[in-house]
Computed example of a mutant assay.
Amino acid sequence: MPEQHAAAASSSSKESMARVLGSIAGGLLELLLFHPVDTIAKRLMASNQTYSGLKNASLQDKLNLLDSVMFHESAGKAWSARYKSLYPGLGFAMFYKVTQRCYQFAGQPLVRNWLDRKYKRNFDEAFGKRSLIAQHAVAGAITGTGEVMLLPLDAVKVKRQTDRGKSSLPGLGSLHQLYRGSFWAIMRNATGASSLFGFAALGKELFFGLSDYRQATLYQNFVSSLVASVLSITIVSPFDVVKTRIQAAPLDRPQTGRAILHHIVVKEGFWAFFRGLTPKLIVAAPKITFTFTVAQTIYPSILQWLEKQ
């Protein structure tokens, strides 16, 4: 028995290490390829321009305004300068992205396994043959809620991307300022992670008839991840807009979620809740799909390599 427990513990440790390494690889590749579009999306979401005065403006004036929102001080400069401006704080962004993806893609399976050990009967009774899908969705929600711990890292990243990071950041005694918008971050992360993992699991069952998700091929992981990422990004867009504006506000002039909601509803209109959604769906959805697919596909290969060591 002790030998069996030791073998099980070793296998679990290798599985966790494989997921962490797969998540790191996915996070690094995601950052290098997709960070510029994430920056554009954040700048569009942070902008409270109503554009109402541009209805009769020329196309050039509209393009100039869009140029200034997306590229800030690099607007109107050469395209090389504009592109470079979309990589603000790259070193910090790398630390944040790798930490975030390791937490998400390596942490959610651990929570799912815990739910399966402790509450499998409850899930089976409540969801029947969709029990495994429900476990993945609930594990995603739990993991997403815990992601609020990374909110200071996210806040600094957003401030850098929206050019607010040039002002002094709070000292160690005032780090609570970087937790502004925590309620909206929890709502966004819990809803988004639950949707991502839940729809991905549902896709593998509905589209490919898989019961053991670890057997999914690269193509199957890609298709299920793509559908899940598009749906999750769309669902959480209103939460993301409010959260981003709270984080992008200067530290000495904070904005509350209630004030932002009031401004959007009264001044900007309902569709402002989905501002920045188009670039996110065009590239950010493939970004999440890419990272999720890489993490899931690389994981079995890394696990096999670790088991041979």
Rank of each mutant, 00 (worst) to 15 (best):
N64M: 11
K62G: 05
R121D: 14
V227C: 11
P170N: 01
V37K: 13
L172T: 06
R82M: 04
I142C: 02
F274A: 04
M149W: 14
M1S: 12
R253M: 13
I282W: 10
K243A: 14
G198T: 13
F208A: 12
L33P: 00
A141W: 03
R188C: 15
P152I: 03
D154W: 14
I24A: 10
T143Q: 00
Q215M: 06
Q296E: 13
R160V: 03
G53H: 02
Y51Q: 07
K157E: 10
T256F: 05
D124P: 00
L153H: 05
L33N: 00
G128Y: 06
Y119E: 13
Q161K: 03
Y299N: 15
Q49W: 09
T234K: 11
L178K: 03
Q215G: 04
Q177N: 09
N64K: 15
G171A: 02
V242C: 00
A106E: 11
G165P: 11
H176L: 09
V283K: 10
S131D: 02
S85T: 03
A6T: 10
G181R: 01
G140N: 07
P238H: 05
V69F: 07
S10R: 15
S13C: 13
Y87I: 06
R253Y: 10
A75S: 11
F292N: 08
R43F: 05
P2W: 14
P36E: 01
F239R: 00
H262I: 11
Q177G: 09
H262D: 13
P152Q: 06
F92M: 02
P88T: 04
L66I: 12
A201R: 01
L281C: 03
E3A: 14
L231G: 11
R160S: 11
A228Q: 00
S131P: 01
S13Y: 13
V241A: 11
G128T: 03
E15F: 11
T99R: 00
F239S: 07
Y51T: 06
S168K: 14
I233P: 06
F222A: 13
G89A: 07
T291W: 11
T143E: 02
V227M: 10
L251Y: 12
L226C: 13
Q161S: 10
S174R: 11
K77L: 15
H35I: 04
H176T: 12
A201N: 05
S85G: 02
A25P: 06
P286Y: 02
F208V: 12
I24N: 05
N221D: 07
I264V: 14
F127L: 01
A201D: 05
M17N: 08
S10H: 09
L303I: 05
L44Y: 02
P88Q: 05
W114T: 00
P170Y: 01
G91L: 09
Q60F: 08
L44A: 02
E147S: 15
G257Q: 06
G276W: 01
V98A: 05
T143D: 00
G26S: 09
L218E: 04
G209W: 00
L21K: 10
Q220L: 10
L169Q: 09
L175K: 00
K243L: 15
Q255V: 14
G203R: 01
A57H: 03
R245D: 04
R112C: 12
S232Y: 01
N56M: 12
A185L: 09
I233S: 09
K77C: 05
T278I: 09
